[in-house]
Design a protein around this nucleic acid. Structure first.
Length: 158
DNA sequence: GCCAACGTTGGC
DNA sequence: GCCAACGTTGGC
């Protein structure tokens, strides 16, 4: 039995929401446009097929973990960096020597209730979460204990 | 809309 | 290699 790791991906819902992911034809999306080296390292090196991901809505009235996605393709070069027409174009990145990477994720579920940032902050056992300490990291690891606790809070039976 | 936190850039 | 200036993220 292989052991999967857990992650948290942030997205601004006005840009791309959990509902948007759910409503895609095959509920699958390229997680492109990440332009931070630490997040890139996770995408390129550590995020594996089958890993589960908390979908977090940021920069919104009530920031919260709202659902779960799953990795369906491991890290590969983010081609949006190669396209001058694309908002995420980066002239330093080239197909033969890519700087930026992405993974593909598919929709798994909406949480029975969103777990807000405010609620997470109130839980001592979660004080070490990257979300609470590394506020600007958009792709980040979630420890197994944190993952399990948050699922329990949300009322998810696994 | 404001602004603090913080990652990145570039001059020296 | 330091660090000030700058730009962006994201909570509020």
């Amino acid at each position: 039995m292989s052991k999967h790791n857990h992650w948290l991906f942030k997205s601004e819902p006005t840009c791309f929401s959990l509902e948007d992911l759910k409503n895609l034809p095959d509920a699958t999306e390229h997680w492109d446009g990440v332009r931070n080296y630490q997040a890139r390292n996770f995408l390129r090196d550590q995020i594996k097929l089958g890993d589960r991901v908390f979908f977090y809505h940021s920069n919104t009235a009530e920031p919260a973990i709202v659902g779960i996605a799953q990795v369906v393709r491991e890290g590969y070069p983010d081609w949006t960096a190669f396209d001058p027409e694309n908002d995420h174009f980066d002239p330093r990145s080239a197909p033969e020597k890519p700087i930026w990477y992405m993974v593909d994720v598919r929709f798994v579920r909406v949480l029975p209730r969103p777990i807000t940032l405010a609620e997470l902050r109130g839980i001592p056992a979660l004080a070490g979460m990257a979300l609470l300490n590394r506020s600007r990291l958009s792709v980040q690891p979630v420890r197994e204990e944190e993952w399990d606790l948050i699922l329990k809070l949300a009322g998810v039976e696994e």
